[in-house]
Design a protein around this nucleic acid. Structure first.
Lengths: 208, 208
DNA sequence: TACACCATGTAAGTGGTTACATGATTGA
DNA sequence: TCAATCATGTAACCACTTACATGGTGTA
């Protein structure tokens, strides 16, 4: 139940309603975890039932009600317990690796397109993660300010260093993936070249 | 529906029954994708219904029946279609990054233990992926032999190069993760040291 | 005859996605 | 008054996990 803990971690920075949480998870800040609102609202109700968070009803205008949730002592304890527990190594399935496993079944130029697609995608991901890491180091995101406001100034540098490190990690993983795809691209380009030389019967065949 | 395609990819090497597929997905070869048998059997039935695979009933002894599935022309076409299609970039949630995001909430030595745990775990993963990559390059796994048996010898080196590249990719991702965790460990160790110097009141406080 | 392995499933539950439903408030 | 945004949900579905159920076969 990672969503529960993601929500606890956000509400530890400041109280929010479901709508705001949804916006947050949609933003780049929520890149590490995300959830549609249809999952957020029921989860909040469940968490409230479990005593991890508590709601304060507010009314905008005359009728529009919103439920602003804050983390409780029990929620804080649960968050700390979960953070300190060894992460369970669930089998990480990777659809892209699975697809690449069968790339020998298609023409080299099709395989090349797949790798190029991955490279482009990952490059966008890298810059997004890195930008956010920098913003955190600069203490320049809406949430980090609020979060730091509740902590002693002596801790501030450590806190942003750890949070930024997570986003640098996301960038690092994306880089590894992009480099892997680039190597794959070189691999299929070689294959493509070998095919061109081999096919018009201009001699010098490899293994026969 | 990645499991469907994973199964198609395996059955393209040779016909198998559900039990064998289960064994395969449990083995290191199935590290890229896995599924419990409770998911495999219904999926096979669905795929048979869809005409992607066809079953041959075999009887061992007098009563024990097994259904050996082979890929059909339609299945092969679907596999090729899926392989050539651009991978959809589903938001990749990462529970470990999420957990690390809140590591500032616990004592530095607890955070250090988490990072150490990740490092140890990833190192085991790296060697497994790398070993399998090497076995593929050596054409030395049960499945790759059967797979190559159905392809022209001229293709063999390309095929194993691509498949091995996938496992090298898995290793590369795990390495990136291990390095990230190692950097995280250095980060919290620094913090730990700063805390020790700072706490007994021996002066030289940073930011005040 | 007992144990490891072969073989195929069902059922209940979780976490997440997609689509749909409803209505209030604010500002151009 | 119209559109964008605020606000909270329900329903159906999908992929996957965990637990349970059943029985045959080969061999020590």
């Amino acid at each position: 139940m990672s969503l529960t803990h993601a929500i606890l971690g956000v509400l530890d920075a400041r109280p929010m309603n479901g709508y705001e949480l949804g916006q947050f998870f949609d933003s780049s800040a929520g890149w590490v975890w995300s959830a549609p609102r249809s999952q957020i609202y029921p989860t909040l109700r469940r968490m409230e039932g479990g005593g991890l968070i508590e709601a304060e009803r507010q009314v905008r205008g005359t009728k529009l009600e919103r439920r602003v949730y804050s983390i409780t002592e029990a929620g804080l304890a649960e968050l700390r317990r979960w953070v300190a527990a060894p992460p369970d190594s669930a089998s990480r399935r990777d659809p892209v690796l699975l697809q690449a496993l069968f790339l020998d079944m298609v023409e080299p130029d099709v395989a090349a397109k797949i790798f190029e697609h991955v490279i482009g995608e990952q490059e966008a991901v890298i810059s997004r993660w890195e930008q956010h890491a920098q913003r955190l180091l600069d203490k320049d995101t809406p949430l980090i300010r609020e979060r730091l406001g509740r902590r002693s100034p002596a801790e501030h540098d450590t806190i942003v260093a750890i949070k930024a490190h997570v986003f640098e990690g996301g960038a690092a993983m994306a880089k590894a993936r992009a480099e892997w795809a680039a190597a794959g691209l070189r691999l299929v380009r070689q294959e493509q070249a070998a095919q061109k030389i081999g096919s018009p019967g201009c001699g010098a065949d490899a293994d026969e």
